[in-house]
Design a protein around this nucleic acid. Structure first.
Lengths: 338, 338
DNA sequence: AATACCTCCTTTATCGTTTTAGATTAGATT
DNA sequence: AATCTAATCTAAAACGATAAAGGAGGTATT
């Protein structure tokens, strides 16, 4: 009932374990036979028995000895967040097809959790790691690089790290597109509600918003809310904006988007007549909301595909690359032409 | 830079590896010192050095020798689904605090994927498995039980399996509550749109709907849509229901809920005047939708907590239990009093 | 004085692989 | 006949931990 081992296979065949191992790990020739200095006949007998017993090598033992572990580590801030889970799902799907198992972890944006997870992963000798890093914890990632484990960063860049792959969203470009879209539809008094977080994606969006406004002769204004009191402050900001006659709001994080929407509903404001709004990140809510919401899609599954493929190349020894993914602006009824 | 090993620790201390291993694996006495036949003084020196080098035992090596693996396997049909990811997140959170790593996998409702994942998990010698099983694949789960690996089923029961833990939603009870809620609010012509799937939760909901309707002297009617053509058929069913003068729809799966809502919007139907609707499963869309949607919450994170705690007890050798979780009916504007 | 019995520690084997460094055999070459 | 070469195959060590069994040294018992 318990899985058969290499040793038992070898004994049944009357050969050494070395031979069996060689056959199984050899690269394949054009005709599908393993390319090692073992006779085709013996190799065939080995493969037949492997098949008969459905033998699966113990990845644990192989890993111990220094071989491939067939295991990847994936860290997201929160796997329960739709965007991260879509990315994770895609990575798992592709990796699984290649025989990898996936260890998942959520950092919850906490440096200590990220450190802990990375330590677990290194301890398990994973073959590669894909991580959406949280702010303020570069040391563990540096350790990953130092140990020669291929590492791909998703969405958030850490410029100081060398030799890591990156799959980054062009946040500045997408915010520029958002502002231009609003301008083109006749909106002028455009404000942003952002969060006081040390995360580059957010900084990029804020910077790009300000630059584009200024370049068009308009004055930017950002409400900065604190993470802890985010809900109350966001609602306060929305009320302020309504009172001031602001025409459009940009909410560059999904929690901000949802709370802003809730407060708009609560205040009885009509969208987009009293206030236009552009939300960020994907949510089933955007297309069922009335009116539908204009939003910036994260293309989360594409990001997963690109990150996995990049990691694969790096695990084969290729150099790390940086891939920029253009986000997609999905137009909805929350920002119609004025 | 690379992690220190037991052997190196032992050499530096001038003792055998066995001694160090014993100190580390011994149960603690009341005063916090390890309870093994090793002098307190030596034990203290060991622990000091362990601390100094931040030594972490290789779970892989320990696992190979037969020890605890500190690794759990979690399978959901789709980690990108909000309900499953909330459960998974909670499991990971709790497990991580106890020092476990988590291997995640999505079965995509495909028996072959589930089998593959289970095989991977067994190959990795996980200490326990939590799974929301897909239909028609009991063999691999039986194998888990046979190998003595503690197993907890979530949400979907497989009555034939013995010795497994279960955390189940009381689907029949929740559907009864839904129907009674609708009846209490004056609705009579209540229909269900369900999917032709061999999954007990769905069957329970269907059965309970029929029973409760009949018990109240009303005639039940279920539109059964095929999974493949679900979207088209659901929309068709909604149009039919509108034409027939149906008063309320129950959509017992989230995809059905979303497509039904989309078709109601598309047909210009007012909710709840032209059609009341009760959706299933949690979604941020329900509370931002206008009107807000009455739905049955899965209590996904509670399920995660309960499943993990049960698994822990089973890993300590306690007997498997079956836990019923009552779902929660969250009232919204989509089913107001008539 | 011989024996039993603690207390504290070590030797050795083992888990299931991979890898290094040969070993064996047969045929070809000198 | 001795040496070389190529083709196949193997023995043994290693990875990092754990467990079974046993040994050294001292104290207590007969």
């Amino acid at each position: 009932m318990v899985n058969i081992t290499l040793k038992e296979l070898a004994r049944e065949l009357g050969v050494s374990t070395t031979l069996v191992s060689r056959v199984l790990n050899a690269p394949l020739r054009a005709d599908g036979t393993p390319d090692c200095d073992i006779s085709r006949d013996t190799a065939r007998r080995v493969l037949e028995l492997v098949d008969k017993y459905n033998y699966k090598p113990s990845r644990m033992a192989a890993g111990l000895r220094g071989g491939k572990r067939y295991m990847l580590g994936v860290i997201t801030p929160d796997i329960a967040n739709a965007s991260f889970s879509a990315t994770g799902r895609r990575i798992e799907e592709l990796a699984s097809a290649d025989g990898y198992s996936i260890m998942f972890g959520s950092s919850d944006e906490r440096p200590d959790r990220q450190l802990e997870l990375i330590d677990h992963f290194i301890g398990q000798k994973v073959d590669g790691i894909i991580v959406t890093p949280c702010a303020g914890e570069d040391r563990s990632l540096q350790k990953v690089v130092d140990q020669g484990i291929p590492l791909v960063l998703i969405n958030r860049n850490i410029p100081s790290l060398e030799g890591v792959g990156r799959v980054l969203q062009d946040y500045a470009g997408s915010t520029r597109a958002v502002v231009k879209h609003l301008l083109g539809n006749g909106y002028r008094r455009i404000e942003m509600i952002s969060e006081n977080m040390d995360v580059l994606s957010l900084k990029d969006r804020e910077r790009s918003y300000c630059e584009t406004m200024i370049a068009n002769g308009l004055e930017p204004h950002i409400y900065k809310v604190e993470s802890i009191t985010q809900e109350i402050e966001t609602r306060q900001a929305v009320r302020d904006a309504l009172k001031k006659g602001t025409e459009a709001l940009i909410t560059p994080r999904i929690v901000l988007s949802i709370n802003a929407l809730l407060e708009l509903m609560n205040a009885g404001a009509r969208i987009p007549e009293d206030m236009a709004i552009v939300c960020h990140d994907d949510s089933p809510a955007w297309i069922t909301h009335s009116p539908t919401i204009t939003y910036v899609s994260q293309r989360s599954d594409d990001v997963g595909t690109l990150a996995y493929r990049l990691l694969c190349r790096m695990m084969k020894g290729e150099l790390a690359e940086q891939i920029m993914v253009p986000p997609r602006l999905v137009l909805g009824g929350s920002t119609v032409k004025r």
